[in-house]
Design a protein around this nucleic acid. Structure first.
Lengths: 215, 215, 215, 215
DNA sequence: AATGAATGAGAATTCATTCAT
DNA sequence: CATGAATGAATTCTCATTCAT
């Protein structure tokens, strides 16, 4: 359980149980949200899909929106973890930057449906929880930004770094988001390769030369 | 009225009136959808905001989803028109490409909320109408792609052109979509300038030299 | 126009026109009521089927129920006329009685759907109009009763005559009403023949003997 | 609960409770349908009359039409049971036939309003359920037919037996259906007596003789 | 802790009727 | 007289949430 889940009140005291039940709930809810979206999914369905009764569902949350929050939080948590483990700022290099971007794109491929959920449903969260979730998004863009700044061989303005990070961020999401268009024309590998190619080009980096040097 | 609106049946025969009322409806609905999204907006609210009764609303549509379709259709129609009028393929040049991209970004700034609606609600359309709307989106990316191919001084593969078009497309939307992040760090002008800068860089074009030549 | 239709107020003064329009209306309404019943038919549909607009419909009636009344009235009027023309009390005879019953059964065959409408919808009329329509029904049973009393060679109590008249009356309707059962087992001719056979038997009349005598 | 009620889905799992609630519902609905018919009765009224909330009503049915089906099914079930218990085919005799017909007429007197409901509303059922209910009606006519065939001292054709059964069937219903006419002229006893008299006469049976013999 | 029956506010949609043109 | 757009009360059905067991 992420620390954040504590924002959601539960009548049940046993923390382990709360975590277990909520994980069931998140899993079930994601399955359903993928299919029909948050609004078209009922709490009864969520309970059933999660393997317990509607009464039990409400022992672990207060409102339906809480489920959405848990789902969004879980998704970002997963992205965050994976991204973090892909980043190694000890040995910064352009190759390293490429590796991170590549990992991120692979991750987005794996999680495309989850990401689509977020895109389409975060807005349904109430102010506070929305703010919370959006902050996590910003954190992740921040991580990409840091990698860019650290790994580039030359200086880049804070603003430009942020722009590039945002671009990478949404290009990753785009793969899932605009899949009907893109996945008809590109394999995942091709997509990643071309996006990284243009990214490096825009950073005025000759990939072959740089790689040679590093080698 | 776009021809597509004929897909939506109306009990009212007078075509002019249908167009007028539907425009009221679209305007009212967009206002509400911006605020609370499609699902949290009731048909009664739409009727009221549009300036007529619930009964009258249903003289011009069959279901609530029809309103969403009308809204999506209207938004894309507007983007399409504006984009079309910005494109001039008679005198292709890199400057021309830049101009188109610039216009597109300005447009996305004006229509940011409308675009957010689309992003978040298209999914709620039923198969047929969704397919219809997504096709319109593809058309627009196609327009950008054509501009890229035509205006670039050198050859570019079909695949790469499509990728760039998609990138531009979502970078425009991103300005509205991720406004909380971006609009804190960039003015619109700055955003457009830097995005175009990187776009040109990634296309391996030295903007100053090209512009000099053209001049 | 039957005199009774004057119970229904019309804004239109021209009596001929009122009659014409109401006949259109009755025809249209019967078509629809057969299909879907009174409650599932809308006034808009009645107007359309009748060949004029909803506004025009309401120039000739006050409420939807008026249409039902007109329909019921028209149906009974038709039955009444036909029954009357089949009855010839100048030369009473058992054969004559048989003829009347036969005519009535043929009529019920022709009008089976109209009769079903009445059976199922009269109840939806308001007190006054319902009373009016039921009186017409009683009149018709009364006609049958009179034929029985007049044509039988022997005395029959008023009560028994009424009972027989009612029996005949509903046996005629039953042909349409329970058509799914009866029309599978009987041709119309067979049905009429057997019903008359039993009718005469119950009146203790040997048909062949009586007929011989008459001849 | 008749087995047939299982055709109607309920969200509630506890079968006993389902039966109890549905019986409340049927009772409440019949009261209302008697008064105003199916179409003029709202689901809210049914819920209230049944003693629970509208939400609870819909836990036990899917649509308003389900209530009608439940009502029709319950009515026929009751008629069926009563008819069955009145029939004793072990000792067939004309007196026995008379007894069955008598019981049936008494039953129709008790259930006149329920029967009127059926007559007027069955048509509102959708194809499948209507077919189902009509089959039950046929079953009951079949029971009467069997009694006729078994109890008569002489042979009677299948067709004629069926005709008589149908006649008896609707003569019973007629007592409730045309009550405004008949109940003014007849007591129940008189009605039954005369109908049975004519029935036996039409079957060419001298009641006094037959009864003497049996005695 | 778990269950699931009960609740009722709220939502979409329909349709008889009116009335200005 | 004819039209048909406008109206809004009424209706069916849903679903988040509660609470007694």
């Amino acid at each position: 359980m992420t620390q954040n889940q504590n924002q959601i009140l539960s009548s049940v005291k046993n923390a382990e149980l709360v975590e277990k039940r909520r994980n069931q709930m998140i899993k079930g809810a994601i399955t359903l949200f993928k299919e029909k979206g948050f609004h078209r999914t009922t709490t009864r369905e969520i309970a059933k899909e999660s393997g317990f009764s509607i009464g039990t569902l409400y022992e672990y949350i207060r409102t339906k929106e809480d489920v959405l929050f848990l789902v969004c939080d879980a998704i970002y948590e997963q992205v965050h973890e994976r991204l973090e483990s892909a980043i190694d700022l000890e040995n910064p290099s352009v190759t390293n930057l490429e590796k991170v971007v590549e990992s991120y794109f692979y991750l987005m491929d794996e999680m495309q449906e989850e990401v689509v959920i977020m895109y389409q449903e975060v807005k349904s969260l109430k102010k506070d929880t929305k703010e919370y979730v959006l902050q996590k998004e910003r954190d992740m863009v921040g991580m990409l930004e840091k990698v860019i700044v650290t790994c580039l061989p030359h200086e880049i303005s804070k603003q430009d770094a942020e722009l590039m990070a945002n671009n990478i961020f949404i290009q990753g999401q785009m793969w899932g988001f605009r899949r009907w268009v893109l996945q008809k024309q590109f394999t995942l590998k091709e997509y990643i390769d071309r996006q990284i190619h243009y990214l490096m080009a825009s950073l005025a980096i000759d990939r072959t030369i740089v790689k040679d040097k590093e080698a």
